[in-house]
Write a protein that binds this DNA or RNA. Sequence first.
DNA 1: GTCTATAAAGGGATAGAC
DNA 2: GTCTATCCCTTTATAGAC
Lengths: 201, 201
Amino acid sequence: MPRPKKTDSERRAEVLRIAAELFADRGVKQTTVRDIADAANILSGSLYHHFESKESMVDEILTRFLDELWGRYQSITEADLGPRNTLEAIVVASFEAIDKHRAEVAIFQNDSKHLSRFERFGYLEERNVEFRKLWVGLLEDGIADGVFRGDLDVDLVYRFVRDTVWVAAHWYRPGGPLSAREVAEQYLGILLDGISRRGDG
Amino acid sequence: MPRPKKTDSERRAEVLRIAAELFADRGVKQTTVRDIADAANILSGSLYHHFESKESMVDEILTRFLDELWGRYQSITEADLGPRNTLEAIVVASFEAIDKHRAEVAIFQNDSKHLSRFERFGYLEERNVEFRKLWVGLLEDGIADGVFRGDLDVDLVYRFVRDTVWVAAHWYRPGGPLSAREVAEQYLGILLDGISRRGDG
DNA sequence: GTCTATAAAGGGATAGAC
DNA sequence: GTCTATCCCTTTATAGAC
């Protein structure tokens, strides 16, 4: 029978979750180990029983998140739904990621640029390259198939889509007035058809 | 005849410009006064001849930029061009702001949330409220006039537009392959009409 | 206007007791 | 697993010489 007291690994996971929230809200650099310790109700020295360094906390948070997200994207593209349905599924999956892992998305978005200067975080740039390939390929396929407009600058569209999706992590709150799926649908409505009223209706 | 040597105020402006670039690229907190001094080829103590503090540098950069931008927006809305033309003009003006003041836009986008916690930077939140009013009003007018779709969530559209426009400061480079106006036009094409190929063409 | 020198506070990390 | 105590480096800012 398990002890009622929290195990080491449960406590560890809890501390990492607390750290992720702080990193997301204030930025990694602005969050001190003392901030994390305070929020976890221990002293800063005690953190080092669980983690090697503050850097390793960030690393663990981002690695786990990006592996999961990329796996999700992979399973969507492997389903061969065609450009339009694939795009919709990727967007929905992205908003679901914001819903489930808001802190991780915010950290990825805010601190990637700075972190990827360090060798340890080289995988951030690698992931970005993979994401870009996925999106640009998707847009090009769609244009070739005639489902997307032929006059699009795919690189520009890619950047707009990527940024607009991820930036929602700044204001989206799980349990708020809009579900992840509702936000995704409004967003796809704008991306696919624009905000103008159609001439015929 | 002016002296060939740089005047105090010229040097001051130069240092402030250098600081803005560093703040934009690394974030305000991650940029140390020594970084700024190094880039300006002086020692850190010498900065305090020109400025009261690092904070006051940021303050000056943002105040000046936001005053100019808001003035530009005001003159557009006062021209009464109707919702669609006003929206286009505001978007173009925003991309021109990125073109002319890339560093300032990046600082505003990256550090506003953190800075606005301090009383000194309360105006950041005030400006955000004004921007929001402008955009939401514009979208509501457009829906009432029948130029924008009636099923839009104006708050959501506002956030998408705001974020997508400003986030371009992260990748846009003056003198690159695309001019500010070209980016604005591509962007307006997506926002107004979507990326789908129309049924009739 | 910039430098030398340094104060004062903040921040990451460690050693060993409990 | 957490605390006490502390080291050492970084960072902002100041005082006064040149």
